[in-house]
């Protein structure tokens, strides 16, 4: 699949352009840099006409085709009706040929079988993040954009999500703050600062010490293969 972002301008983004050819990506950047805005623009939740998927404008696609190609997993679960439970919520993600039986499988995979019949409004923020992630796996669009998929999770769950991002089928675009996650995933890195792309390239070069210093100053310190906040 080819995704082309061609001179995208929005309230927060300033002339963002890049192209993805059957590859995964990590988007890094500080708070308010425009990461979520960019992801929402790509799936056209934020309406614009600068995104092309397989040379077709996303904003001109039929809704069905768009849902087959692109999906966005927000960082917070939002459900209006208090009586919709987790299982029912996940049923709504069965649209690209995934079967009913897959729901149980994915719930087991993420260790959240016990949530199946709880109301989506009663579960914790970490749990709802796992539910959203499960929905992304079930919808199984060609490219899935994950917004901070590990932000509220315990370390064992973080590892689980990491492994799934690494090996589950489908292309992924992962927004995160977590440098260690980005490093371990090894995907191509896009770095946003104040709505402008200041780095776009391989993971290896991104974590090169000179580049890190250029982007973060001395606030990040590398210890072996880990990146620490350098509290002084």
């Amino acid at each position: 699949m080819n995704l082309n972002i061609d001179h995208l301008h929005t309230d927060y983004l300033n002339d963002v352009s890049f192209e993805l050819n059957n590859e995964n990506m990590v988007i890094l950047g500080s708070n308010g840099a425009g990461k979520t805005t960019l992801a929402k623009a790509i799936v056209n939740l934020k309406e614009n006409d600068r995104i092309f998927c397989n040379t077709k404008k996303v904003c001109e696609m039929s809704s069905e085709l768009r849902a087959r190609l692109l999906n966005f997993i927000p960082s917070k679960l939002e459900v209006f009706d208090e009586y919709i439970d987790v299982h029912e919520f996940l049923e709504l993600s069965l649209l690209n040929g995934t079967s009913h039986g897959e729901i149980e499988k994915v719930l087991r995979l993420l260790d959240i079988e016990h949530l199946a019949h709880k109301s989506c409004k009663e579960i914790s923020s970490g749990e709802s993040q796992l539910v959203l992630f499960a929905g992304g796996l079930l919808q199984n669009s060609e490219l899935t954009l994950f917004d901070e998929p590990t932000a509220n999770l315990d370390s064992d769950k973080k590892i689980k999500i990491f492994e799934l991002l690494k090996r589950h089928q489908g292309l992924k675009l992962v927004i995160t703050h977590d440098l260690n996650l980005a490093y371990k995933l090894g995907f191509r890195v896009l770095f946003l600062q104040n709505g402008t792309v200041t780095y776009d390239g391989s993971c290896e070069q991104f974590f090169d010490s000179e580049n890190l210093f250029r982007l973060f100053g001395d606030s990040i310190k590398r210890v072996d293969d880990f990146f620490m906040v350098n509290y002084r």
Partner: peptide, 17 residues
Amino acid sequence: LRLILTSYDNAFLKGIE
């Protein structure tokens, strides 16, 4: 209707006009 009852964003992403 059930998709709308989750959220508009969710309904949009599931391919609803």
